[in-house]
Structure formats: C-alpha cells, structure tokens
Amino acid sequence: MIHSTQTDGGITVVRPGVERLTAINSKAFKDEVVALIDAGSSELIIDFTSTTFLDSSGLGALAGVLKKIGHRGELAVCGLGSEVMQMFKICRMDKVFSIYPDEAAAIRALSEKS
C-alpha cells in the first residue's frame, strides 16, 4: 500500500497511499514501513499530504514505527492536514514527532541533521 522513494542523500520518503489510515489498514502500513527500516532505511519522512484522516489505530501504528526506529535513526512527518494536526496536538504527538509543513522542508531539515 505504501509508496516510498529515496533521495540522493539516502532519506526515505514514504506516502501511506491511503486517504484514511485506520484500523483497516494501519497494520499493513506499519509492517511495510518496518520492512523498510529492517532493510536499512534509518532516515524516514512520512508524508501525509494525501492522507486526510488518521484514527487511533493509525496513530498507534505511527507510534510503533517511531519506537522501531528509536535512537538509531530519524523519523519526521509532514503534510499534516488540520484534522490530523488537531489529533497530534491533543495526544502531544507534536512533542515526539518532528513535524514539517511539506516534504521539501522535511528533507532539508533531515539533511542538515545528518
């Protein structure tokens, strides 16, 4: 389901490929992103531009990915719509995820860090 590309600097950009990340597809989403991490991706950006809704299971999957990367890499999210952002705020996810307005800003920030 996910669509991933790699930048020249080795950053993996993931688009979930679904409009709604929910109980129905969040496990597949997590499994696929974890497979990327297992295959060696350590700097990831998840772009939610085309994903307008995230339910509690979707958020759980995203937190699972963050825990999987842990201190061994970087995970950033970008393109959060107002509803997703609201959910991030109420759950304080803005304190644990690096959030950027769009892919370009996220790539720039991650490139500077490494």
Partner: peptide
C-alpha cells in the same frame, strides 16, 4: 487529560469551555 478529547464545561450562562490542552495517550510511550 491523556489524549482523550477535551470535555466541555458549560457554566450557568451557557458559556462553553473545552477543558485541557492535550496529553500523551496511556501505554504508548
């Protein structure tokens, strides 16, 4: 508040205030 939507407090004049400004869910981190 731990990630649950803010409840509303409504005073006697009907003024509605959402309570809390968020918090981590439980069992996540």
């Amino acid at each position: 508040q731990a990630g649950y939507p803010s409840p509303y407090y409504v005073d006697a004049r009907g003024h509605v205030t959402p309570i809390g400004d968020g918090g981590f869910p439980v069992g996540m981190f």
